[in-house]
Amino acid sequence: MSAEKPPIPSVWARRRQRRDQPALSQDRIVSEAVRLLDEEGMDALSMRGLGARLGAGATSLYRHVANKDELIELVVDEVYGEVRVPDADGGPDAWRAAVAECAHSLRSMILRHPWVASVLGQVGLIELGPNLTRQSERMLALFQAAGFAPDEADQAISALIAYVVGMTVNEAAYLSMLARSGRTEQEMAEELRAAAQQAAPGHPLLEAWRNDDPRQIRERKFVYGLDRLLDGLQTRLGPAGT
């Protein structure tokens, strides 16, 4: 007889037990963990530190969350609940605006919670979380309503998410660095512009580009890449989206 296989290491694959402990619930633990991560980043997250913030020992947390990996699964799914995915009732002609809205919402979520970019795809079966499952179902419905076959809809979603996450990781890292420096984005841009002019003079095209508002530069870059991605997906549907 073969040995019994170990359970899948994921909070979503483990049978949950209800516990009557109103002072400390899983929802409260997750909410406080998100606040800690937003304020101090992933390096600051520990079961002991989180327990201290909640006025409880780490042992009390383990009654609701088995370990740090499970906690990360829970907080990732929690913030994914903030992403807006429009209804798939606009027909094939409205798919592009709806997908763009979804992409912008995902980008905004990551910029609000920059720590999330560092753990996507690295912890457990996060795709089994209720928020991420619901968002994935809605996105599949959106792409299939546009005219994509089910298997290609899944691939199109993967391409979209990869683009958004890839672009936003750099933004999130930059904004986190700004927060640590105590400078505003405009102040940092002005300092970098002055340093660049001294270090590498005689590049008028670059100098003209650096005079733009840094926030608008980030936005334009994201929109440009998103539009080109959607252009490519549009070719799979035909010129009229049919």
Rank of each mutant, 00 (worst) to 15 (best):
S2E: 14
S10D: 12
R15F: 09
R15N: 11
R16G: 05
Q17I: 13
S25F: 07
I29V: 15
I29E: 02
V34N: 08
V34K: 03
L36E: 09
D43V: 10
A44Q: 09
L54Q: 11
A58V: 13
L61E: 02
V65R: 00
V65Y: 09
K68F: 07
D69H: 07
E70G: 07
V76S: 04
G81A: 15
V83E: 05
P92E: 08
D93T: 12
A97T: 14
A98V: 02
A98H: 15
V99A: 09
A100Y: 02
E101Y: 04
H104L: 04
H104K: 03
R112K: 13
P114Y: 01
V116W: 00
G121M: 09
V123H: 13
V123A: 13
L125R: 13
I126Q: 14
L132W: 06
T133C: 04
E137L: 07
A141N: 10
A146V: 03
G147N: 09
D154T: 05
A156Y: 07
A162I: 13
A162E: 15
Y163C: 08
V164A: 08
V165P: 00
V169W: 04
N170L: 08
N170F: 06
A173T: 06
S181K: 14
R183S: 08
E187D: 15
M188V: 01
L192M: 15
R193Y: 05
Q197F: 02
Q198C: 01
A200V: 06
D213K: 06
I217C: 05
E219V: 04
R220A: 14
D231T: 02
D231H: 01
L233P: 02
Q234N: 05
R236W: 09
L237M: 11
G238D: 04
G238L: 09
P239R: 10
